[in-house]
Structure formats: C-alpha cells, structure tokens
C-alpha cells in the first residue's frame, strides 16, 4: 500500500470515510496553507481567519463522514467552496461588505504567525506579510478575490470562473486589472522586489 503522503486526494477521502483518521491529518497537512491563506487575505484578521478555517474543516470533515462528497477527486476546489461560502456568510453576519472595510485597522498582531522564529526572522516575516496584505487591501474586492483564489488557493482561472459564477474572460480581466494596480503600487511605494 502506498504511503499516505503519496496517495491522491480521492484515495485519502475514501480512506478517511472507511475510518482511518490519519487520512484527514494528511488532507489538512496538504491544504492548510492554501485554505488558510485564502481565508486570511479575504477577511484580513488572523483571529477571524482561524475561526473560519476551523469551521470550514469541521464542515468538510462532517460532509466526508456523511458521504456528501462527490467531486471526482477534486478535493481542493470543493473544500475552498466551503471555505469561501463561510467567508461570504461571515461578511453577511457582520453586515460588512468586504470592499467597504477600513484599511487603517491593520495590526501586526493580526498577522503574527504561530511558528517559532527568532526575533529578527519574525519581524522580517511580519513585514513581508504586511506588505502583501497592504497590496491586496487596495484592490477592489472582486479583483482581490480572483488574485487570492488563483495565487493562494491554487485554483485555475477556469475553476475560479466556475466557483464565482463568472465567465473565464471576466476572471482573467479581473486578474489583469489587479496586476496592473499592484504593479503601480509596488513602483509608487518603492516596495522591494525579490532578487
């Protein structure tokens, strides 16, 4: 039998549904970065992002246990749809339209990662995430959403268009405007680029 790290998503789902707990551990390990980054950059608050991330995974696990998963092995787009719907519900509950949020509420505390780093590494890490967050903050929500789903979630433009119910050219067009705007911001604010 293949080691669990080599198994594809569909086999992991079947394994979990047959009662093997290690399969869900592997799915979380495999996708926590993509799903968490996506939620985090949409809600822009670490605490809320962690709550939504937990809620999303509990929903995912419950659906898997009830055999409600039927996505022909496309676990990530399915999981991201669950996470994305929770984010939308969150904005509705908070009566916040994401594009209307104040950008002055940025706090380094919001972005503190939990992995152990020394003080200098920690500051550098915070600065980098803070800069990216500032870039994304200044995009209109619809453009930001496409960038996050493409870049952090790893969905294809086609999958994004399906998930957001827009056509492919609209998804690509939003990415186009977002890239232009981010490039302008990088130049205007002299944000350092990686060598």
């Amino acid at each position: 039998m293949a080691t669990i790290q080599l198994m594809d998503d569909r086999d992991l789902v079947h394994l979990y549904q047959s009662g093997d707990q290690t399969a869900i551990n592997e799915l979380i390990r495999r996708y926590k970065q993509k799903i968490f980054s996506t939620i985090y950059f949409l809600v822009r608050n670490r605490e809320q992002a962690e709550d939504l991330f937990q809620e999303a995974f509990i929903k995912i696990i419950t659906s898997l246990r009830k055999n409600h998963y039927n996505e022909q092995g496309k676990f990530l787009p399915w999981a991201l749809r669950i996470a994305h719907n929770l984010v939308i519900d969150h904005f509705r509950k908070e009566k916040l339209m994401p594009m209307q949020r104040d950008t002055d509420d940025f706090s380094v505390i919001d972005i503190l990662p939990q992995r152990s780093r020394n003080a200098v590494e920690q500051i550098e890490y915070d600065e980098k995430i803070g800069m990216v967050r500032e870039l994304l903050e200044k995009l209109p929500y619809e453009q930001r959403e496409v960038v996050i789903l493409r870049h952090y979630a790893g969905l294809s433009f086609k999958e994004i268009s399906k998930m957001l119910n827009i056509n492919l050219n609209t998804a690509l067009g939003r990415m186009h405007y977002a890239i232009i705007k981010m490039r302008e911001m990088i130049q205007k604010e002299k944000i350092p680029l990686r060598e």
Binding site: K32, F53, I129
Partner: peptide, 21 residues
C-alpha cells in the same frame, strides 16, 4: 515580479487551531 511578491504573503494557521480540528 508581482507573483513573486504575492508569494511572500503565504501564511499558515496556528498549530493550536490545527490540533483542535
């Protein structure tokens, strides 16, 4: 260049939340 810059923003959930899940 923009894509590389976005790469710097990748972040992880805390171990605590993963353990709770």
């Amino acid at each position: 260049e923009v894509i590389n810059k976005l790469d710097e923003g990748i972040c992880m959930p805390s171990d605590e939340v993963v353990n709770r899940i």
